[in-house]
Simulated assay, not measured.
Amino acid sequence: MYEELYEKLPDANRYWDKLGLSRPEAPLSKDDLDRIIFAHQSRIPFENLDVCDFHRPIKLGIPDLFEKIIVGNRGGYCFELNALLDALLQDAGVKTMACLGRSLKDRGYVYPILHRGIIVTLGDERYIAEVGYGGPTPACATPLVDGAELESCGQVFRVELHDGGWWHVIYRGTAARLAAARERGEDVAPTPVFALLDAPAALTDCVPLSYYCSTHPDSVFTQWRMVNRRTEDGNVSITKDQFVRVTPEGKETRTVESEEEFRALLEEHFGIVLPA
C-alpha cells in the first residue's frame, strides 16, 4: 500500500535535465546543494491546482510524482516537491532525513504540523533543503546552526533552535531594507516563516497530513489557488486572482480577469499548460 513512497526515481537524468543541471559528482558540496535548490525553486513551481481547481487526489508515490512534475511539467506543494527532491538527493548519494514541520505565519494560534521538510547531511554539517514552502524561503541550503544568518537572493534569514528540537527559519527582510534601517538607527521586525522538527519522520506519516491539506475545508490549499516560482531576478506568483511579478525595478500587480488570462499566465510564467 505504501511501497511506492519509498521507490527510486524512474529516470534521474531526466530530473537533472529539468533542473538545467548536470549530475554533480559525489560527494556533493554545499555549493552543489545551493545550485540544486535555486534551480528547483526556479524551474519547478509551487502550486496547488490539483487541490483547489481540479479536486484531484494527491498521490505521493515517487513514480506518480515524477510523472506529474517532471514528465507533466507541473509543480506541487511540500509533500510532493520535497519528496521528489529527497529522492533525487538520495540517488546522488546524499544522506537525507525526512522531517515534519509547521508554518510560523501569525494566525493568532499555533499552526498544526502540516509541512514536510528535508534535512541534509554533507560531511559534518547539516542543512535544510527546502523547495516546497510557498515563501519567503532561502534559495540555498540553510545551515542548522543556532543563530546563523544568511543572505540569499537579496533576502536575509536567521536560524534559531527552540525547545523540543524545533529549528525556526526567520525572515529578517531584504538586505537593502535592513541596510537602510541600520543607517536610520531603526529596527526591522522579523517574520517567522516555518519550523522543522529535528527528528526523522516515516514517509507514511506524510500521507494523512497531505490528505488533510488537500481535502479539508479549513486547509488553505482548498480555499484558494496558489502558484509561485522564483525567477533569476525576483519571483512571480498568482494568489487567488492576483498576479504579482517582482523584479529589481519594482512590483507589478494585476487582477486576473478570466480563466483564459489565468491559463495564459500559467503557460508564460510557470511553464504549465493545462488540459482543455
Rank of each mutant, 00 (worst) to 15 (best):
A98C: 13
A98R: 14
L100S: 05
R102H: 13
R102F: 06
K105I: 15
Y109Q: 03
L114V: 10
R116T: 05
I118T: 07
I118G: 01
I118Y: 04
G123Q: 08
Y133M: 13
G134Q: 09
G135E: 02
C140Q: 15
C140L: 02
A141V: 07
L144Q: 05
V145G: 02
G147S: 10
S152R: 03
C153E: 11
G154Y: 06
Q155C: 13
V156L: 03
R158F: 03
R158D: 07
V159Q: 13
G164Q: 11
G165M: 11
W166C: 05
W167D: 04
W167A: 04
H168A: 12
H168Q: 13
V169D: 07
V169H: 06
Y171S: 13
G173C: 12
A175K: 15
A179G: 05
E183I: 06
E183A: 12
R184W: 01
R184V: 00
G185M: 08
V188Q: 01
A189F: 00
P192Y: 00
F194Q: 07
L196Y: 14
L197Q: 15
D198A: 14
P200T: 04
L203Y: 14
L203Q: 12
D205N: 09
C206S: 14
V207C: 11
P208I: 05
C213Y: 02
S214F: 03
T215G: 03
H216E: 02
H216Y: 01
H216G: 02
P217D: 04
V220H: 10
V220G: 07
F221R: 10
F221V: 14
T222W: 12
V227W: 02
V227S: 00
N228A: 12
E232H: 11
D233S: 06
D233R: 03
N235L: 03
V236W: 01
S237V: 02
I238A: 06
T239W: 00
K240F: 11
K240H: 13
D241V: 01
F243Q: 03
V244C: 12
V246D: 00
